[in-house]
Structure formats: structure tokens, C-alpha cells
């Protein structure tokens, strides 16, 4: 049994089982997200999709819609909190956009534009995260990992290889490769894997195609992520 809830004051219909994010998107309303992907079950870790329901913060990707809910999403308060989450992601890794192949196609960068993030505000960590260039077709640059686990989920649930995992806790959490040597070359990872094309940022990069698309023609150069994501259904 479905119903209707109010999304930023506008009525949005939903079907039984749909989450707030799914129903909002079906009605044409974009909610920022990083770890959510239409092809995967909700993960609820990035918290970019937080909305306020009845005065409480909830992850809209994970909470089923209920009849009569009043959902606040595109408000200065919620967008300010989303911006703070982005700023923490930016200082936690090494996100040096001018040298990144993913620049212009990166969801983290595009969301920072969308949410008016002009600086990272906090003190940068500048962690030491060596890259893994061992694989013949794919480069891993761990500096940019935001721990969304999309590669972990894609490799485990779609490719059935389990190439990636997160290890460590809290500030020591990091992405690892499931091989004795820790090197991607020593796994059965292939460039045709789903996990090779799932990274929302610039960690998993195909070799020999970097910077092929000129500035001005990249994914988020023309239109912002709130428009691109809805048009492409991602």
C-alpha cells in the first residue's frame, strides 16, 4: 500500500517498499548521494542523502517512505550539513583535482560544486597513501577513496570475485586489495568487471584513457550533478 508524503512542501507519491530517495527521484526531485547507486541496495554510509523527517535526521536512501511524512531536503540547514560532510571527505584524503583524471567526471567534486563548497574549511590531513599501478589495465589511486564501498559491493555481489575490502576502523579505515601481496595485479580483477566502472571518485582508473575527454565536454562541465544524475538515472 502506497501513499503520499511531502517533499520540501510538495506532494510525492510512493509505492509500498520505496525509500524516500527512490520515490523523490521518481517524482523528479534530486537528493545528493555518494554511496547510493540505483543498481545496489542502500548502504547508508556517506550520509549525503540525509533529510529531516519530523525533526529527525534520517538517511533517505535507506528509510522507507510512509504516508503523510514531511521531508525537508533542499534547505539551508540540511545543505550546510551535507557541505560539512563533503569538507571532511576532502581533508581526509588527498583530493588534488587539477592533476586528477576523474576531474569533471567526479561525483565528489560535482557535489562540492552543487553545494557551493568553496573551501575545505578544516585542516587537511595529507595522508600517505601509495598508489597501486601493478595491474596492466587499471590504476588504483587510494588518495581519493571516500569509503563508499561501491567497488567492494560490485566486486563481491556482481563480479563474484571479492577483490576489494575496507579494513581498519575510524580514522585508520582504508581500502585494501584482497591478495596476499596486497597488489591488484595478483587478483583476478579484470577491466571488464563491474567494479572497474563503479568508483564515483578517482580511485579506480582505466589506464591509457586519462584526459581523453577535453575540458568543457566532461560529464559535469555543462550541467550540474543534480541535472545529470536525474537525466542519466544514476
Amino acid at each position: 500500500m502506497g501513499g503520499t508524503f511531502l517533499f520540501d512542501g510538495r506532494p510525492v507519491p510512493f509505492e509500498e517498499g520505496q525509500t524516500i530517495l527512490q520515490a523523490a527521484r521518481a517524482a523528479g526531485h534530486y537528493i545528493p548521494h555518494l554511496c547510493w547507486h540505483p543498481d545496489f541496495p542502500p548502504h547508508g554510509s556517506c550520509k549525503l542523502c540525509i533529510v529531516k523527517v519530523g525533526g529527525r535526521h534520517v538517511s533517505s536512501c535507506a528509510l522507507p517512505a510512509r504516508d503523510g511524512m514531511e521531508v525537508e531536503s533542499n534547505t539551508p540547514e540540511i545543505n550546510g550539513e551535507r557541505r560539512a560532510l563533503l569538507q571532511m571527505l576532502f581533508v581526509e584524503g588527498n583530493h588534488f583535482c587539477p592533476s586528477c583524471e576523474k576531474s569533471g567526471n567526479c561525483q565528489l567534486q560535482a557535489l562540492a560544486y552543487e553545494l557551493d563548497m568553496s573551501s575545505a574549511r578544516f585542516a587537511h590531513f595529507y595522508p600517505d597513501r601509495p598508489v597501486d599501478a601493478s595491474h596492466p589495465d587499471v590504476l588504483l589511486d587510494f588518495n581519493r577513496c571516500i569509503f563508499c564501498e561501491l567497488c567492494v559491493r560490485a566486486s563481491r555481489d556482481v563480479d563474484h570475485k571479492g577483490v576489494f575490502a575496507l579494513t581498519g576502523r575510524g580514522i585508520r579505515k582504508h581500502l585494501v586489495v584482497n591478495a596476499e601481496s596486497g597488489r591488484l595485479a595478483d587478483t583476478d580483477f579484470a577491466v571488464s568487471d563491474r567494479a572497474a566502472d563503479i568508483c564515483p571518485v578517482g580511485v579506480i582508473l582505466h589506464k591509457r584513457v586519462g584526459f581523453a575527454v577535453p575540458i568543457g565536454e566532461r560529464k559535469y562541465d555543462e550541467a550540474s550533478i543534480s541535472i545529470v544524475a536525474m537525466e542519466k538515472g544514476e
Binding site: F96, C97, P98, S118, S119, A120, H124, Y126, P127
Partner: peptide, 18 residues
């Protein structure tokens, strides 16, 4: 006013920070 990547996040010179 901080102008450009280097003033805002250290930029290219900060690639020596680790």
C-alpha cells in the same frame, strides 16, 4: 581572499606533504 587551488588546499606544492 584566497585565490586558486594552492591558497585553498596547498595545491601542487602540498604534494610533498607526505
Amino acid at each position: 581572499v584566497a585565490v586558486g587551488a594552492c591558497a585553498i588546499n596547498g595545491g601542487l606544492p602540498a604534494q610533498r606533504n607526505h
